[in-house]
């Protein structure tokens, strides 16, 4: 039996037995290579679920939708390892109760889908540890290394070029499972920290703030990158930040549901070589 069928059966059992009130998974998209999130609450609909190598969106963000988990019922969700890490972070930041989440874990190697064993986040800690140890590269490693080698002026010009394309649609924010603030800092206008017009200055500020708020929290699922209508390589900034917190504080985001957020904790002997 394929994983798709196994998971359909499991979803059917969970829904018909009332163990979960909803299954969040992937369904057919607008064309053969696209998948869209679907929200199933009836056992009769499980045939709509699709699971293949085109299922790339991180669905964990839907779990923090207002009111979804407040009735304390369980919700099942299809997640890749990055999504599972995201659940850990959301739980660590008290945004959800991890016990309410039933995980349909899967991973894609090449174009083969394999199931990840487990139901609750704790059971996936080995998978997450092995990702940490394998030190994943940036999505576009070549470009990343090229940027690293540039002089500050060149880097500034590179990002100026990229950010000049930004139209401030905030799709990156909406797509990100970690951007759950009811009131985002860019929506605040007293004081107005970030220029809201989509001129390059305001775009710089917005993208710096976005990346900073994701430092030590980003799981590099790539939702922002794919959501960006003008293809700014947002993931590279997030990757640089992930590298920084891993190097400086040995912090790999989302290893457990009790992990302390990196910027809300400290050690007395943290590095301070840059402080005069």
């Amino acid at each position: 039996m394929s994983i798709e069928e196994q998971y359909r059966t499991r979803a059917k059992e969970l829904l018909s037995g009332g163990a979960v009130k909803m299954v969040i998974g992937y369904g057919k998209g607008s064309n053969a290579s696209r998948r869209r999130p679907i929200f199933i609450s009836s056992a009769d609909d499980v045939e709509r679920l699709v699971l293949d190598d085109a299922c790339i969106t991180n669905l964990s963000g839907y779990l923090v939708s207002e009111g979804l988990l407040s009735d304390e019922k369980r919700v099942a969700v299809f997640l890749r390892p990055e999504g599972i890490r995201a659940i850990n972070i959301l739980a660590a930041e008290s945004q959800l109760d991890a016990d309410q989440i039933v995980i349909f874990g899967f991973d894609v190697a090449g174009n083969e889908v394999k199931a990840l064993k487990g139901i609750h986040v704790e059971e996936f800690s080995d998978v997450i540890t092995s990702i940490k140890e394998s030190a994943p590269e940036a999505a576009e490693e070549e470009l990343f290394e090229k940027i690293e080698k540039m002089s500050p002026q060149e880097r500034f010009s590179f990002w100026q070029e990229e950010f000049s394309k930004c139209i401030k649609c905030y799709a990156c924010r909406q797509a990100c499972p970690m951007c759950y603030c009811r009131r985002c800092i860019v929506d605040s206008n007293q004081p107005q920290w970030v220029n809201t017009s989509s001129h390059t200055l305001g775009n710089f500020e917005w993208n710096i703030v976005r990346a900073f708020h994701l430092s030590g929290r980003c799981v590099e699922c790539g939702n922002c990158d794919r959501a960006c209508p003008v293809n700014i390589p947002l993931r590279l900034i997030n990757h640089r930040m992930a590298e920084e917190v891993l190097g400086a504080f040995d912090h790999f985001a989302g290893t457990s549901k009790t992990q302390e957020p990196v910027l809300a904790s400290f050690k007395k002997d943290d590095s301070e070589t840059f402080i005069l």
Partner: peptide
Amino acid sequence: YHARRRWMVFRALLDFIGIP
């Protein structure tokens, strides 16, 4: 101590964006 961690990360971010 909290500030120090924040600066460490923010410094790296500014550097990567090209703000010397």
